[in-house]
């Protein structure tokens, strides 16, 4: 078998989000870039599956940083479809991933359940239809034995388990495995792995985006009752005033 894991370079959104001037994307110049937590877990699962997985991304030249991060924790090959990810819609990305899968004869593809920036919740599923393969969605644990993928995660029916024969697509949610930290030798090795560059197979139809906006900041009317432990009497006064202090 041969595993491919798909990651996306996204702006680190833990700090304040700034939009690009044209409103078509998030400006990462201040916040920096990362890959989504779901994809870190997908990479970890791919490494645990243990067949020396390939990592791929569709992104600009800088996305090499995320490919190297995945190589440093155990991926053994990398494919870079060089393109501006913001101009690709989910169907475009799925088609490009399918091209990589066919050319390199992968039979298991792991993706994140949803990308941390565009949050489309669909590239993995569209990829499955491109390839004509089954897709298991939103799982936290994945293992492979005798050509069968066992995948499980929490769902409305309880802890749900799927069993599908290869080839298959699986989309991963964070929470089932702890992504490992790269070791120094891991990082050194990652620097030497050649990255296969590809051009997109077709011009993108593009996302259906009109523009991005920031939610308007809510006006603040907060009344500060105090700082630290000294605020306790004022807090309990408030409880009494609101009548929530059960006797």
């Amino acid at each position: 078998m041969s595993t491919l894991v798909c990651i996306k370079r996204v702006v680190d959104s833990s700090s304040e989000v700034v939009l690009t001037e044209d409103g078509q994307g998030v400006d990462g110049r201040y916040a920096g870039f990362t890959m989504s937590a779901h994809e870190e877990c997908a990479v970890e699962l791919a490494v645990q599956i243990g067949d020396g997985p390939t990592v791929m991304t569709l992104g600009d030249a800088d996305a090499v940083e995320q490919l190297r991060a995945a190589l440093a924790v155990g991926c053994t090959a990398a494919v870079h479809v060089v393109a501006d990810a913001q101009t690709f819609g989910p169907a475009d990305v799925a088609r490009e991933i399918a091209g990589v899968v066919r050319d390199r004869s992968h039979d298991l593809v792991l993706l994140g359940n949803d990308a941390a920036d565009s949050g489309d919740f669909q590239v993995g599923i569209r990829l499955a239809y491109e390839l004509g393969w089954p897709v298991v969605n939103g799982v936290t644990n994945v293992s492979v034995a005798d050509g069968v993928v066992t995948a499980s995660g929490a769902g409305p029916d309880g802890h749900e388990t799927y069993r599908v024969p290869l080839p298959a697509v699986v989309t991963v949610l964070e929470g089932g495995v702890e992504p490992r930290y790269p070791t120094v030798p891991g990082r050194m090795k990652a620097k030497k792995v050649p990255i296969e560059e590809r051009q997109p197979t077709a011009a993108p139809a593009g996302p259906a985006r009109v523009r991005l906006l920031l939610p308007p900041p809510a006006p603040s009317n907060v009344q500060i009752l105090g700082k630290g432990a000294d605020a306790a009497p004022a807090v309990v006064d408030l409880f009494e005033q609101l009548g929530v202090l059960a006797r």
């Binding site: 907060v222 009344q223 432990a229 306790a232």
Partner: peptide, 22 residues
């Protein structure tokens, strides 16, 4: 900023003090 009231501080100090006061 969205709250009606706020206390600025470490919850591990503020909450025990509130409990004590109650």
């Amino acid at each position: 900023t969205k709250a009606t009231y706020a206390v600025i501080g470490d919850l591990h100090e503020v909450v025990p003090a509130i409990n004590e006061e109650i």
